[in-house]
Design a binder for these strands. Structure first.
Length: 411
RNA sequence: CGGGGCGUGGCGCAGCCUGGUAGCGCACCUGAAUGGGGUUCAGGGGGUCAGAGGUUCAAAUCCUCUCGUCCCGACCA
């Protein structure tokens, strides 16, 4: 991608309504634009990050054996009345009417819809267990949206729902999802922690949250490494861990939540399958969410410095940015272009700053948008047959012979 | 919903107290110089001050209401 043609606008001044560093940097780096409270447009650079996260989540979910589907964002009120959640959920539900004056809501979550699908599709124990997931836009009319995409009203979420013949099958899947979540958050490059949690509105017995550790987090976590115990403080009623260990406290951003729902939804919605003896049983359910768009902000909270964002390599919008210093010098621009094409054909995502800007501007913006690898092409380097590689994260600079560069990258 | 702050070109702000029809920085356009950390100089375009009503000869400025937005709280799979 050539930056001279890329619709990227960055800002030196911090927008006044952004409180969190991640929110400030997302706006300054041109990743998102606010439309209204809790509603954001993902601009090209930001969307690349979002898609990278989605891709990782999708790959790991597929790997776990779950099936991707896509349910409607709009849901009829009747389904929600079956579970009693039309009233329970209250104003968090964005309620809307169609032209026939029928009532719908913009889905904040999809237990009702998936249970409806399964009660029509799954009729035998032989079809269990099964796990369906989707990556989709949700809407929750939050009382107080804040911190940009961290607590937006409209956001991207991966939600998965599993169905089981018995508890051991549910336990199995629950563990498998926990494992999958570990893989996902590790690949994304987050420093996170799995903690015990309250099930809240959604119901059910067992649940764990995945928190990205950050001082700016909205939740407080109590933990004890000796006992390998961690829980949301909402769950803690004493000052010590279960076996008496001392608790330490930290703050976290909830990016994932897994639940065992039991038979709450299957019972309320009349989902049943036949067992070996032809008797009806109510399948047990699990549900597993990941806040895709929230992860973008959470990642920035963990990975930034005074100059800007530092993307972990697997979610970075581009792997490399080639900075051609001095556009008036044909040798530089043509060599930069040559390197650009070479990296591109090696399969890495690369951006070239081919704008007629001063070195300072190019460095500052490259730092701000956080591309992991900066390749500097300059007269100074060309005279000795090298380019300079700067690692955004470590700051380490290294001169590399031009003819070795591509080799190094592909290797 | 309760409390507080703020709304002035795309962004950040000043002006408001002590009314007299709008200013600065960034960004943008043109030209020139410069060319390794948001460079410099010159020229230029863009806002009627969130909206409505009121006071006044005169309102960005004073008064009232409405809307928007942010923060704290309550709330939150």
């Amino acid at each position: 991608m050539e930056l001279s043609k890329y619709p990227l606008k960055t800002y030196k001044d911090t927008p006044s309504d952004a409180e969190l560093v991640s929110h400030q940097l997302m706006l300054r780096a041109g990743l998102i634009k606010k439309l209204a409270s809790g509603l954001f447009t993902w601009m090209p650079l930001g969307l690349r990050v979002l898609r990278n996260i989605e891709d990782i989540v999708r790959a790991e979910m597929n790997q776990s054996g779950a099936f991707e589907i896509l349910m409607p964002a709009i849901q009829p009120s009747s389904l929600w009345e079956e579970t009693g959640r039309w009233d329970e959920y209250g104003n968090l539900l964005l309620k809307i009417h169609d032209r026939h004056d029928r009532l719908f809501c913009f889905g904040p979550t999809h237990e009702e819809v998936i249970t409806d699908i399964v009660r029509k599709e799954i009729t035998s124990y032989k079809q269990l267990p099964v796990n369906f997931y989707q990556i989709q836009t949700k809407f929750r009319d939050e009382i107080r949206p804040r911190f940009g995409v961290m607590r937006a009203r409209e956001f991207q979420m991966k939600d998965a729902y599993s169905f089981h013949f018995d508890q051991s099958s549910l336990d199995n899947e629950y563990d498998k999802m926990a494992n999958t979540y570990n893989n996902i958050f590790n690949r994304i490059g987050l420093n996170f922690r799995k903690v015990r949690a309250d099930s809240g509105e959604i119901g059910g017995s067992m649940s764990h949250e995945y928190h990205v550790l950050a001082d700016s987090g909205e939740d407080e976590i109590g933990y004890c490494d000796e006992e390998n115990y961690a829980a949301n403080v909402e769950m803690i009623d004493s000052k010590s861990a279960p076996n008496g260990g001392l608790l330490s406290f930290t703050r976290g951003i909830e990016v994932g939540h897994i639940f065992q729902l039991g038979d709450k939804y299957s019972k309320n919605m009349g989902l049943s399958v036949l067992d070996h003896e032809g008797q009806k049983i109510s399948p047990l359910m699990g549900c597993y969410g990941i806040g895709i768009s929230r992860i973008v902000a959470a990642s920035i909270e963990q990975n930034h410095d005074e100059k800007g964002i530092i993307w972990p390599e697997h979610i970075a919008p581009f792997d490399y940015i080639i900075i051609a210093l001095n556009n008036k010098n044909y040798d530089i621009t043509s060599k930069a272009k040559e390197i650009y094409e070479a990296i591109k054909s090696s399969g890495r995502e690369v951006m070239i700053d081919d704008r007629d800007e001063r070195a300072g501007v190019k460095f500052a913006e490259a730092d701000l948008i956080g591309i992991p690898n900066q390749i500097i092409v300059s007269k100074r380097g060309l005279d000795q047959g090298t380019i300079e590689h700067i690692n955004r994260s470590s700051g380490v600079k290294e001169d590399i012979a031009i003819n070795e560069l591509v080799e190094k990258i592909s290797g």
